[in-house]
Deep mutational scan, measured.
Amino acid sequence: MTTFKLIINGKTLKGEITIEAVDAAEAEKIFKQYANDNGIDGEWTYDDATKTDTVTE
């Protein structure tokens, strides 16, 4: 398992969460579901060097 981080730069929700996932694709799926569940819809970027997804509304 690898640690992945999501940075949220939303209009109403800001912060970050960290998860353990098998790979980047699994982490992205989990993060996008989390964002959807919390009403966050924005531009996504991924930095492989830091294993960090960022969503900005």
Score class of each variant (00 low, 15 high):
K29H: 07
E43W: 13
K11N: 14
T2E: 07
E57Q: 07
T50N: 06
A21Q: 03
A27M: 04
E57H: 06
F4D: 02
M1Q: 06
Y46T: 04
D37K: 07
I30P: 01
D41R: 13
T54N: 04
K51Q: 12
T3E: 09
T2R: 10
T54P: 04
E20A: 06
A25N: 12
L13P: 02
F4S: 01
F31A: 01
E57V: 13
A35N: 01
I30Y: 13
A35K: 02
V55S: 07
A24L: 13
A27D: 00
I19F: 05
E26D: 08
E20T: 11
L13R: 02
T2Q: 13
E28Q: 14
N36I: 14
I40P: 01
I30T: 02
T54L: 08
T3V: 12
T56G: 07
E28L: 15
A35W: 07
W44C: 09
V55T: 04
T12W: 14
T12P: 02
E57N: 06
E16N: 05
E43Y: 11
Q33H: 04
T2G: 06
E43A: 08
E20H: 10
K14G: 04
K11P: 10
D48E: 13
A24H: 15
K14N: 04
E57C: 11
T18R: 07
K11W: 13
A27N: 02
I30E: 01
V55Q: 05
K29G: 04
D41F: 14
A25F: 11
K5P: 02
G10H: 06
D47V: 09
A24C: 14
V55L: 12
D53A: 15
I8A: 00
N38M: 15
Y46S: 03
L6R: 00
E43H: 11
E26Y: 05
Y34G: 01
K14Y: 13
K51G: 08
V22W: 13
G15N: 08
E26Q: 11
E28H: 15
Y34T: 01
V22D: 01
E28M: 15
D37F: 08
W44K: 01
Q33T: 06
K14A: 05
K29V: 08
I17D: 00
A24I: 14
T12F: 14
A25T: 09
I30Q: 02
E43G: 03
D48N: 09
T3G: 02
T2N: 07
T54K: 05
L6P: 02
T18C: 14
Y46M: 08
Y34D: 04
T2P: 08
E16W: 14
T18W: 14
N36M: 14
D23C: 13
L6C: 12
E16V: 13
M1N: 07
L13H: 13
T3P: 02
A49K: 10
I17Q: 00
K14E: 07
Y46C: 13
E16I: 13
V55D: 05
K11G: 09
T52E: 05
T52G: 04
A25Y: 11
D47R: 04
D47F: 10
E20G: 05
K5H: 10
I7M: 03
N38Y: 12
T56Q: 06
N38H: 14
I8F: 12
T52P: 03
N9C: 15
A27T: 00
T56K: 06
T18V: 12
A25I: 09
W44Q: 01
I40G: 02
D23Y: 08
W44L: 01
F31I: 05
A27E: 00
V22F: 11
E57M: 10
K29M: 09
T56Y: 08
T56F: 07
N38R: 11
T45E: 10
D37V: 08
T2W: 13
K51C: 14
K32R: 14
I40K: 01
Y34F: 12
A27P: 00
G42A: 04
T50L: 10
Y34V: 02
A21E: 02
I40W: 06
G39L: 05
I8L: 08
D53C: 15
I19S: 00
T56W: 06
N38P: 02
A25H: 09
T3F: 10
K14T: 09
D23H: 03
D47E: 11
W44E: 02
T52R: 08
A21T: 03
T54D: 04
G42N: 03
V22I: 12
F31Y: 01
I19Q: 00
I30G: 01
K11V: 14
A25P: 02
G42Q: 04
N9M: 08
I19G: 00
K51H: 12
K32S: 05
K5I: 13
K32N: 06
G42Y: 08
V55K: 04
T3H: 05
Y46A: 02
D23I: 03
D47I: 12
F31R: 00
G42T: 05
K11L: 14
G10F: 14
M1S: 08
G10Q: 05
F4W: 09
Y34I: 09
G42S: 03
F4E: 02
I7S: 03
K51D: 03
T50R: 05
T18N: 03
L6T: 01
E16G: 05
K11E: 11
T54Q: 07
K51A: 08
G15W: 15
A27W: 03
T3L: 11
T52D: 05
F4I: 04
T50Y: 06
I7Q: 02
T2D: 04
I19K: 00
T45F: 11
I8K: 00
T52W: 06
V22E: 07
G39I: 04
K29Y: 05
D23F: 09
G39R: 04
D47Y: 07
K14Q: 12
N9W: 10
D37H: 04
A25L: 11
N38V: 12
D23L: 02
A49N: 09
N38F: 12
D37C: 13
Y34M: 08
M1L: 14
I40F: 10
E16R: 03
D47H: 07
I17G: 00
T3M: 11
Y46N: 02
E28Y: 13
K51I: 05
D48L: 12
N9E: 07
K14S: 08
A27G: 00
E28T: 10
D41Q: 11
Q33K: 12
